[in-house]
């Protein structure tokens, strides 16, 4: 059922909530569409009128300046009207329920919600309960999914590696709490890479991570051997000095990416990170700023990919991309 909640009867994108259930063809279409937008950044006029007259609300129940900004830029470049709402600091703290917030905003004739929420499933819930003409894009829900981030990562990988077949990809760090990793794993497998490895201590891996179609490893030498892509995840400071991890220095020694560990990978490996990075915690500055790093390209690709997803979901409203 709700596996297909994000698709129309014709199999087109209505919402964008998760990578789950989306075919390789559809994911490829998103990447192709994003490519057509990515050239625009160099133009004098960076706007297209695809979503002119449409109203998009960035509904952030959890603070995130970077993700919100790229969504805002993407919407602006599609000529939509954008309203930012930081609910983390307003309505729900006054006891208003998630549903009431949605209903109130719906009444203002919006066309799309871009939602970030601290709980897994929040975007699904909103998509199920919102008016049928509204599209919902998941900008991160709890530990469940961050599908636009995953797609911009796929876009960046394709830019550098041309195709997914044959690639070995390692995702390193706090997989357990990472919605980004969950979406990346689904996307990489759907797009047909050769191997997805996750590298972390067991405290930071989901109990049944193997069922997600990955190889789980606890050692960087073994895990990075011969990989084409390394994705480093951000480690939240609150995991330190807790039951998850003893200390920053021990984590960096075991799982931090430095130049020595980078040598285990293929010579043309690319290093990615969804940001914001913790220098010296999960990644050394020399690697983050080094020749293999594509971290800043990920950020610029984020705009084109989000433009693609926004315009594709709005096609169900008769907008043609």
């Amino acid at each position: 059922m709700s596996r297909h909640i994000q698709l129309t009867e014709q199999g087109r994108l209505k919402h964008f909530l998760s990578i789950e259930g989306l075919s390789r063809e559809l994911l490829t279409e998103i990447l192709d569409t994003a490519e057509s937008f990515s050239g625009m950044a160099g133009h004098q006029i960076k706007k297209v009128p695809l979503l002119r007259g449409k109203t998009i609300i960035n509904l952030f129940f959890e603070n995130s300046t970077r993700t919100r900004t790229t969504f805002e830029l993407a919407a602006t470049r599609l000529s939509a009207d954008v309203l930012n709402m930081n609910i983390a600091t307003s309505a729900t703290s006054k006891g208003e329920s998630l549903l009431d917030t949605i209903r109130n905003l719906e009444a203002m004739h919006v066309d799309m919600f871009v939602v970030r929420h601290a709980l897994s499933g929040a975007a699904h819930f909103i998509a199920q309960h919102t008016a049928p003409h509204i599209s919902v894009i998941n900008a991160g829900d709890g530990q469940h999914a961050h599908p636009t981030q995953a797609m911009l990562d796929m876009f960046t990988i394709r830019q550098h590696k041309k195709q997914f077949a044959g690639l070995k990809v390692a995702i390193v760090g706090d997989i357990l709490h990472s919605r980004v990793a969950r979406s990346q794993i689904l996307a990489l497998n759907s797009l047909g890479v050769d191997q997805v490895r996750v590298i972390a201590p067991k405290t930071l891996l989901p109990a049944h991570v193997k069922d997600m179609g990955v190889i789980d490893l606890h050692d960087m030498a073994e895990g990075l051997a011969d990989v084409d892509v390394i994705i480093m995840l951000r480690l939240q400071k609150e995991r330190m000095n807790s039951a998850f991890l003893p200390s920053e220095s021990e984590y960096f020694r075991c799982f931090g990416l430095n130049e020595a560990k980078l040598k285990y990978a293929k010579s043309d490996v690319i290093v990615m990170h969804p940001g914001p990075i913790n220098r010296g915690v999960e990644i050394a500055s020399s690697v983050a700023d080094g020749p293999h790093s594509v971290i800043l390209q990920q950020v610029s690709n984020g705009i084109a990919v989000r433009m693609a997803i926004m315009s594709m979901t709005m096609q169900s409203h008769g907008v043609s991309a």
Partner: peptide
């Protein structure tokens, strides 16, 4: 704490 919670990011 099984395959489904792992996949859907549910505690």
């Amino acid at each position: 704490e099984g395959a489904v919670a792992s996949r859907y990011g549910l505690p």
